[in-house]
Amino acid sequence: MSDENSALTAMAQKGGKAQAGDAKQYLTFMLAGEEYGVDILRVQEIKGWDTATRIPRTPSYVLGVINLRGAVVPVLGLRQRFGLDTVDFGPTTVVIVLRANGSRGERTVGIVVDAVSEVYNIDEANLLAPPDECHTLGSRFVKALATVEKKMVILLDVDLLVADDAVAADAVLEVAAA
């Protein structure tokens, strides 16, 4: 885990040299071939996948809870969250532990992604709003789009992603889809 963290720091430094200005750093990760990013200040740590304790009667994207140094932390499968095909967890599969602000204060939640990718400095001015015409499960968590090295990076809103009323929101979305 410490290796991963130092890798993270190294990445952060590499990205940090790239440019200055009104830029924010984003940690990006891969999910089914797409690159997603989250505000790096929200990332607490990155750890390898280990089995989680399943919580009965929760949506399938709640993979369970893990022991994070004494704290009980839920882990969400992002593929399941976005309604993508599930794959077996491989060697690059990691849990990104995020700090989110919910209605009851700060919460710590892990998300499972295919692999960690990069840390980018992205200028606030270069962010693009996502088109209104997206209606997939995952699209409502999208905060903005950015282009880095001619690739599209999808920036996610961490608070929305792990909000506990997300289930209700899902239901609304389903009704709309039907």
Binding site: T53, I55, R57, V65, N67, A71, V72, D164
Partner: peptide, 19 residues
């Protein structure tokens, strides 16, 4: 006893979690 609610939410039928 560790709260499930702190980082997740209350789950009916469960009083919490432990390690």
């Amino acid at each position: 006893v560790k709260s499930l609610e702190k980082n997740f939410r209350q789950v009916r039928g469960l009083a919490g979690a432990t390690i």
